[in-house]
Amino acid sequence: MPITVASATEDHAMTFHQYRLEDMGRMRVRKYCEIEDREVDQGEIGKGYQLTREQVIPISDEGLGCPVPGQDHAGPPRSVGSWSHHRPQWLLATISSAA
């Protein structure tokens, strides 16, 4: 049965930025390496779990993945389409006019 994916919610979020009160200059966040004392690019930043004060276990995005129930029947998630996985969705049956 063909289906269509439709958003079940609307985005009504307001976004704010941080500004310095004195001159309304926009505030930015820069990421510095504590060991090398330098600013780093986003591509150099990874995730990790701090096990002890001295020991960090690196975590990859693939390592955080969760199995999808029934994935062996539905195929890989990328075949579903580019709809948003983090927002509620409606699955609507597509009715054909040709009967």
Rank of each mutant, 00 (worst) to 15 (best):
I35C: 10
I35R: 12
I35M: 11
I35Q: 10
I35P: 03
E36T: 12
E36I: 07
E36F: 02
E36R: 08
E36S: 13
E36N: 08
D37M: 09
D37V: 08
D37A: 10
D37H: 10
D37G: 04
R38G: 01
E39F: 01
V40M: 03
V40S: 01
V40A: 06
V40P: 07
V40Q: 00
D41G: 06
D41W: 14
D41N: 12
D41L: 14
Q42P: 04
G43C: 09
G43K: 14
G43S: 15
G43N: 12
G43A: 14
G43H: 15
E44C: 13
E44Y: 09
E44F: 02
E44T: 02
I45F: 06
I45H: 04
G46Y: 00
G46H: 08
K47W: 11
K47Q: 11
G48R: 03
G48W: 02
G48E: 04
G48D: 01
G48I: 01
Y49L: 07
Y49D: 01
Y49G: 00
Q50F: 08
Q50E: 11
L51H: 10
L51S: 09
L51G: 03
L51N: 08
T52L: 07
R53C: 03
R53H: 09
R53T: 09
E54G: 05
E54Q: 13
E54W: 10
Q55R: 09
Q55S: 07
Q55I: 15
Q55D: 08
V56T: 15
V56G: 00
I57F: 04
I57M: 13
I57D: 06
I57R: 04
I57H: 02
I57Q: 07
P58H: 06
P58S: 05
P58N: 02
P58F: 06
I59A: 06
I59T: 03
I59F: 13
S60H: 04
S60G: 09
S60N: 09
D61H: 11
D61S: 13
D61I: 05
D61G: 05
D61N: 12
E62R: 07
E62F: 03
E62H: 09
G63A: 10
G63T: 09
G63F: 02
L64E: 14
L64M: 15
L64W: 08
L64V: 01
L64C: 06
L64H: 01
G65H: 15
G65D: 14
G65P: 02
G65L: 15
G65C: 12
G65K: 15
C66I: 15
C66Y: 15
C66S: 13
P67I: 03
P67V: 11
P67G: 03
P67A: 05
P67M: 05
P67L: 08
P67K: 09
V68Q: 11
V68F: 15
V68N: 14
V68A: 13
V68M: 14
V68H: 15
V68K: 10
P69G: 00
P69E: 10
P69M: 01
P69A: 03
P69H: 05
G70D: 00
G70N: 00
G70L: 01
G70H: 01
Q71R: 13
Q71I: 11
Q71C: 11
Q71A: 14
